[in-house]
């Protein structure tokens, strides 16, 4: 129990100290991107890793958060704080409505339905030009202010996003080690047994879906206020799949998977953007997807539970073999 909290505090300390030690706007901007993705993946890890429900459409909520806050704050002059909350409420509502029929589906069908949902929302961003600006994009999203303090430079924004990430990680961690978290994990473990102990599976799937949508929405909103310009392509099906890659890379055996997966993804894509053009001079566009594709396939075939689980396996090998009691070994069975 205490070990769990200690890790969180150490992590928070590291986050706090980083900009004081490393003075690089480039690194800060990378860490900010990792922050956005960590926030999305935090919710998504709860949904996919703990409750075992796949989503191929979370870019939609990221986008809804971004466009709602952009529209309300830039077009209607709302305070960004309020518009971010409005985005989260709308995302939660949509997740709830869409979730009801969607989570009656399983496996392949669930994957297809969430993918379809993502494409529909993406198309709406593209086509409802009067609100979103269509493919030309949405300009002039204001930055966030706290009283006179404006989150306009990277260092300030860094603290803002990572505060939110930390709070959400804490929230998730609390969920996991509670009645609700066990209910979620039980769904992945065995739906028949969840039923048998009186867990309303549908209710928990919906709750965690709404939670993950809120996380994605807030991340998208913050992203919009950070970059001040958004266009639909930032929220297409590819992004949903990138989220999936991050969640799978990080793994779901701990909430840190979200941060680790996002970090690996962002750092790897930055690295590839630096290195690949040196080797292949004609590489352009989103060539780095080759590597992510390979990463995804290799992870799923050889490390299906993600990096955190692989790490636990390596470090935990001796521990489990010594603590397994003789009674457990000699219990018989088939």
């Amino acid at each position: 129990m205490h070990e769990r909290r200690l890790g969180t505090w150490l992590f928070a300390l590291g986050i706090l100290l980083f900009p004081l030690i490393v003075h690089s706007n480039y690194l800060l901007s990378i860490l900010i991107m990792i922050g956005f993705y960590s926030l999305v993946c935090n919710g998504l890890t709860m949904l996919m890793g703990y409750a075992g429900q796949i989503s191929l459409g979370h870019a939609a909520f990221y986008g809804i958060g971004a466009y709602t806050t952009a529209y309300l704050s830039a077009t209607h002059g709302w305070s960004p704080w309020l518009s971010i909350i409005a985005g989260a409420v709308i995302s939660a509502f949509i997740a709830f409505i869409v979730g009801i029929p969607t989570f009656k589906l399983k496996g392949h069908y669930l994957a297809l339905a969430t993918l379809g949902f993502g494409v529909i929302v993406y198309t709406c961003f593209k086509e409802f030009t009067s609100i979103t600006g269509g493919m030309n994009g949405f300009f002039g999203i204001p930055s966030i202010k706290l009283f006179a303090w404006e989150f306009s430079n990277d260092a300030r924004f860094y603290y803002l996003i990572w505060t939110v990430v930390l709070l959400s990680l804490l929230f998730s961690q609390n969920i996991i080690h509670s009645r609700v978290g066990r209910a979620l994990r039980s769904i992945e473990g065995s739906e028949a047994a969840s039923d048998a102990v009186g867990i309303d599976i549908m209710r928990y799937k919906l709750q965690v879906f709404v939670y993950s949508a809120i996380c994605a929405s807030i991340a998208g909103s913050l992203y919009a206020h950070y970059v001040t310009f958004i266009n639909p392509q930032a929220f297409d099906a590819m992004l949903s799949i990138y989220f999936l890659i991050m969640v799978i890379t990080g793994g779901a055996s701990s909430i840190w998977g979200a941060v680790i997966g996002s970090s690996v993804f962002v750092l790897l894509s930055e690295l590839l953007k630096e290195v690949v053009p040196l080797v292949f001079s004609n590489a352009g566009g989103e060539f780095e997807i080759v590597f992510f594709g390979v990463l995804l396939v290799v992870m799923l075939i050889y490390m299906p539970n993600g990096l955190t689980a692989a790490w636990k396996k390596i470090t935990g090998k001796w521990r489990t073999s010594t603590t397994l009691s003789p009674a457990a070994k000699g219990g018989g069975g088939r």
């Binding site: 080759v290 594709g293 990463l295 995804l296 396939v297």
Partner: peptide
């Protein structure tokens, strides 16, 4: 599982698309 296989094929589609860019 079915979901894992789906994601593997998504990974492969990325590989194909990326190779096509190269």
């Amino acid at each position: 599982s079915g979901a894992t296989l789906i994601i593997i094929t998504i990974g492969v589609s990325f590989v194909f698309r990326g190779l096509a860019i190269f």
